[in-house]
Every structure is written in structure tokens, then in C-alpha cells.
Design a protein around this nucleic acid. Sequence first.
DNA 1: TAGTTTGTTCAGTTTAAACTAAACAAAATG
DNA 2: CATTTTGTTTAGTTTAAACTGAACAAACTA
Lengths: 164, 164
Amino acid sequence: MNDSMPDDSAPEQANEFIEHMGRVARADGLPRIAGRLFGFFILYGGPCALGELAVKLEVSRGSVSTNTRLLEQLGLLERVSRRGDRKDYFQLTADPFPALLRGIVARARDASAGIAHAHADLPDSWKGAKARLADLDAFYQRIHKATEGIVGSYENGAEDHAKS
Amino acid sequence: MNDSMPDDSAPEQANEFIEHMGRVARADGLPRIAGRLFGFFILYGGPCALGELAVKLEVSRGSVSTNTRLLEQLGLLERVSRRGDRKDYFQLTADPFPALLRGIVARARDASAGIAHAHADLPDSWKGAKARLADLDAFYQRIHKATEGIVGSYENGAEDHAKS
DNA sequence: TAGTTTGTTCAGTTTAAACTAAACAAAATG
DNA sequence: CATTTTGTTTAGTTTAAACTGAACAAACTA
């Protein structure tokens, strides 16, 4: 790794943080190992090879393989190679944070879509139901807009992420 | 129930919507039955007794009991009684929507807190790590602020929930 | 060529949580 | 009092998903 441990004197807080990110991932519908991997890279920067990740996080190489692929697809990690070295190295992408929100954005959009679908399908005789569905749809659309706005500000604003 | 099915001609779309809300709940870290219950009340309004809910949703009375209690604690449902009737009836609270967001708000707050904790604990020698932790913390704080803002607008604005 | 070192895949195990069903308690009725 | 009707609790089952470990494939080395 390039950005190696500055000290080696703080694996305690470091592990605590890595576990924290594992729990955050769980709460977000992602595998615990994916969150721990992300936490590891937040701390140590990388690049780091697959085999080393398995050792450091004490998980199987199979799990590292599937979860690095997942984080790669989400846009949090990217794979880099070095000439004369067969190993795959991983590192954080340039702007990994908005990818963390994509799940929430997508869930809000899907929720809204299903609700709007029900609203459109029900006959007008379902008066109260349609009113409540419209309110619920508006609510999820607000979540969608708000979270998508944050993603957008990271993608456009490139670097400076002020309040909005 | 007061707000009974207007027609009986649309259980198909109705069930589809109820199942949709079950999936939305799952994606949000809530039990599927909790989401189906909420969907049922969006459609039929209520009040509806516990036993009837178990029959209509085809789940055990135990599950209805635990999940109505959950939704009650979250502020989505409230329990009402009728004189001369021993049954518990449930109905949507006056403004149930913001409760749907409280989970996201809390998760963002917890994520930020753990990250800030790590940032404070690590020695300054972890230069790159602390910079990344600060960015990550700022990111989760933005999510927290944005979602909390939506909750607040529902709680204060009482009825008119414009763009912001 | 055989032997290493790498990443991937997948069958099987483990784990965590939802869900059920049965026992229970409380409140009514006859 | 026994019986019925309600809601709750909890032990146990079911289910879904994560995770492992071993087999495999691909690319290199001696």
C-alpha cells in the first residue's frame, strides 16, 4: 500500500471504525464485509491487493472477491494494476461518497413508482385511498429529490460540497 | 372499518400495492408484515381490529400484535377503542409520513457519530485517514440535515408540504 | 512441462431475523 | 363458576442472505 499505517500504534480505534462501517453497511442493506472493506480504505487509502485485504480483515478470499466487485460496481472502489505484478489492487475512486446514497435514491424512486402505479390503477370510487396514495407518493418523491440533489452536487460540484 | 372497500372489485391492484409496501419496508430494514399493514391502512383507512387484520393479510395474530405495536411506536398507527367493544382498533395517525423517514435520519446520525468519533480518536499522524474521515462525516451530516429537514417540514407545516 | 500464485465461482454452512403457533393472561358473558 | 373472546409473549421453525472453503481457471515461473 502507498498510504500505509502512519504509526501501527492505533489498530484499536482503527478496528473499531472498520466494524462501525460494517454495521452502517448492514443498516443500508449491504453486506457487512462490504462496509468493512470501505472503512479499511477510508483509513488506509490503498491501493491494496485482494489477498492482503483477506488477511487484514480476517475473511475468506472469496468474500473479498465478491464484495470488492460489489463496491466496484457501486463506484466506491476501482481496480488498478501494476506492471510486472499479477495482483489486483483496489483503491477508493476519486469521489466515492455519492455512491453511498444511490441505494437510498433508488429505493425512494422504486417506492414512489409502485405507489403511483397503484394510484393510477385504482378506480376513482376508492376516494380516500387515492388521496392517501397521492400524499404518500409526494412524500417519497420529496425524499428522492432531496437525496438525488445531494448526489448531483457531488457529481457536478466536483470538489466543493457546500450546504447546497 | 369506517372507510370500507368502496367496491370490492379491485382486490387485485390492492393486494399488489400491499405487497409492494411489504417490499419497501424490507428495503428499509422493517419487517415485511409491518409494511403490508401500513399499505393496508393506506388503502382502507381503518379503524380495523387486530383479528380482522390477521385474516385480511393472512398472517398470525401474533405477528399482527408485534407489528402493530412496532408501527405504533414509530408513530404510524394509533390504537383507538370503542365503548362496549373489547377489541383494539388501529388507524393511521394524523401525519404518518415523517415517521417513515425517522429510520433514515437516525442511521445517518449514527453513521456520522461513529465517524466523528474515529476522527477524534485517531492521532494526527494519520493524516490522509483523518482528511477522508472528515469528508465522510460531512457527507453523512448532509444526509442527516436533508432528511431531518423533510421530517421537520411535515411536523411544523402541519398540512401544506411544499417543496421546502 | 509441472508447480505457484492469483481471482472467481459455487455448493454448502452459518447466522440473523421474521414468522408461526401454542400457551398464557385479562376481561367479558352466561 | 366455566366459557368465550380478545391481545401478548415466547419457544421453536422457517427463510433469506452472508460467508466460507474448496474446486477451478488463468497467467505466470522455473
